[in-house]
Simulated scan of single mutants.
Amino acid sequence: MPRNPYYAGPLSDHFDGTRFFVPGERPKTNRFSDFLKWRFASRHGPKWPVTFPSPARDKPPARVEGADLRVSFIGHASFLLQTQGLNLLLDPVFSERVSPFRSVGPKRVNPPGIALEDLPEIDAILVTHNHYDHLDLPTLSQLAGCRVLSPLGNETIMRTHDARIRAEAHDWGARISIGNEVFIHFEPCYHWSARGLSDRRMALWAAFVIETPAGKIYHIGDTAYGRGEIFRAMRVKHGPFRLALVPIGAYEPRWFMREHHVDPEEAVRIFQDCGAAYGLAHHWGTFHLTDEAIDEPPKRLAVALERAGVAPGHFQVKRPGEVFKVPLE
Rank of each mutant, 00 (worst) to 15 (best):
L204D: 01
D123K: 04
R164L: 06
V93L: 08
A224F: 02
V148R: 08
A144G: 01
H185L: 06
P112V: 01
D199Q: 08
I294T: 04
R57N: 08
H14P: 07
R235L: 07
G249T: 04
A293L: 08
R319F: 08
A308P: 09
A311S: 15
H170A: 06
V209Q: 02
G321Q: 12
A304D: 13
Y6N: 05
D34E: 10
L80V: 09
E211D: 08
P60D: 07
E187D: 13
V246D: 08
A207I: 03
R242W: 01
P320E: 12
F40E: 02
R242Y: 01
P327E: 02
A163L: 07
M234V: 11
F94W: 15
R200L: 12
V326M: 06
N30I: 14
R175K: 14
L90S: 04
P240K: 14
D295Q: 10
R175Y: 02
G85D: 08
G9I: 05
A308M: 11
T128A: 10
M257S: 00
V246M: 09
H288Y: 08
V303S: 15
H288D: 10
R195L: 08
R235C: 06
S150W: 02
H260S: 07
P213L: 04
V104A: 05
R19P: 06
D273Q: 02
W38R: 13
S193E: 01
V303R: 15
L197C: 10
Y7F: 14
N30S: 15
G221R: 02
W48D: 00
S103Q: 10
D295V: 08
L80D: 03
Q82S: 07
V246W: 09
G179I: 13
F287I: 00
S12P: 03
P27G: 09
